[in-house]
Design a protein around this nucleic acid. Structure first.
Lengths: 274, 274
DNA sequence: CCAAAAGTGTTCAATCTACACCCATGG
DNA sequence: CCATGGGTGTAGATTGAACACTTTTGG
């Protein structure tokens, strides 16, 4: 008996899981990957993919592992949404879930059947079925975070393959924002931020004029890591300043932070972003 | 022996703690509450207040409990920063920490000595000492989040007592943003958003003209909960729209969400914020 | 009367919004 | 030749940034 329950603690410990809200663009809609639960509780209901965090594993590492198990992909944008820990959220035992959202680009959509024969399918964010546990709340929080970031970062590019047309980019914004955008204004805006650049190549197909292909502009675009400098963002700075922030700037900041943490004390006068 | 380790699990479970980044405004600076650790590891170093999440306890509940134990306060603004779970962040065992930040208004600053005789003190965010565990990273993330929200929400009011002058409000923004703000522009801006209203009363004191007192404007100011309506925010909407978002709008949204979750499906077309 | 903080407007530049037509292609 | 989506510019309104002096009080 004690062999089957070999891990012992002085105080009760909760289980910790990661749950993934995997977004993609399909049929010009924002969609989320859901699995149909094969086991109790909530058997037969839809839920987010997820699983336990291993004892030696990073939270982000666990999220990447789950993503790989679910989709076969080792590389994708991944960002923490937060921890969800209502005591009654799982009827079996106390489970605290750390939620992440991921973005799959539309060229990687082929869905391998999940590792364990469960039904897996994409659902439009506008028609999400009833979900198990508190997963409706998690999806909601993830969608809020995604929507918050779409205009402030280059996260939209994560939905697209390396080369894409401006119309495809506009479709991403429209799907995430849930509304139509004026074509001329969008093109002016996105190009003025110079986080994309034209490749000069064309995409032909369909009976219409070919579209110019763009890609992320990786050169010379990193915003100043203001969190670690002496000149915080000016009051009421223009949107263009912040909208150009690159995806992953937080990652860059925290990496920088680790490197500089000892020597930067004198620089740490002001902070960041907005 | 087995009596002292009575909680047994099939798989190893991490411990889960909450850590608090408690902000306030002191000496016109943004400051953080730190405790000096009395025990190993990191004995004698500064750290964030925090403690284990009880098995039957909400994460938010645990954060409130820690806040109460540390400051004696039962009411304060509290918001989750995220989960921090590097496997090596605590040398004793695997500990996953869910960090929150709290804001103490300047009229509640009297520091009760912590429950257990440790040194407790305020530190300027511009001169934070070396911290135990990964607490430097947590403070950094909390400050990022605070800075992000100061212009988009009414969170600044949490730093002040119920009645305050415009200059005091300006000091909050200046401390959080880490820079001086033009007085006339600030007064126009803050008043135009109408999240505060004049009380007609005056604060006298000091040898200068008395200042008019303001308070939060609670009437008629809730922003439309766009996350749950059919009309998401327009493309590139003006800052004034979002800046008026009230503190706690996320709480309101999630409460609304629970109430409406069944009947709102048809409304769930678009989402929020800028 | 003096020091100290409260209070107040205007001008200029940048950005946002709304809006309608021609272009290049495949069939 | 025609249907389809690609591509382009301008004018008016809103907002942001810079900037200096008068007012009221307590001592």
């Amino acid at each position: 008996m004690s062999d089957s329950l070999p891990h012992r603690y002085k105080h009760p410990h909760p289980a910790v899981t990661v749950d993934l809200v995997i977004f993609t663009l399909r049929d010009e809609e924002l969609q989320v990957l859901l699995i149909e639960r094969g086991l109790k509780p909530f058997q037969g209901e839809w839920a987010l993919p997820g699983g336990f965090v291993r004892i030696e594993e990073n939270l982000t590492g666990a999220a990447h592992r789950e993503l790989r198990e679910e989709t076969g992909l080792t590389q994708a944008y991944l960002e923490q949404v937060g921890a969800f820990g209502r005591p009654d959220r799982d009827p079996r035992e106390r489970v605290i879930s750390v939620a992440f959202f991921a973005i799959l680009s539309s060229d990687k959509l082929a869905l391998q059947a999940g590792s364990d024969a469960r039904a897996v399918s994409w659902h439009s964010c506008n028609k999400i079925p009833e979900l198990a546990f508190d997963h409706a709340e998690i999806v909601h929080a993830a969608r809020l975070k995604l929507t918050e970031k779409i205009n402030r970062t280059t996260i939209a590019l994560e939905f697209l393959p390396t080369e894409f047309t401006l119309t495809e980019l506009q479709r991403v914004f429209e799907a995430v924002r849930g509304e139509a955008i004026d074509k001329r204004n969008f093109r002016k805006w996105s190009q003025s931020l110079s986080f994309i650049k034209a490749t000069g190549r064309m995409r032909r197909g369909g009976q219409h004029r070919p579209a110019e292909l763009y890609r992320a502009n990786t050169k010379g675009l990193l915003p100043p890591p203001r969190a670690l400098t002496e000149t915080p963002e000016p009051f009421n700075s223009r949107r263009v300043d912040v909208a150009a922030y690159r995806k992953g700037f937080e990652d860059a900041l925290s990496a920088l932070h680790k490197v500089l943490v000892d020597s930067e004390k004198k620089l740490l006068k002001g902070l960041v972003d907005r």
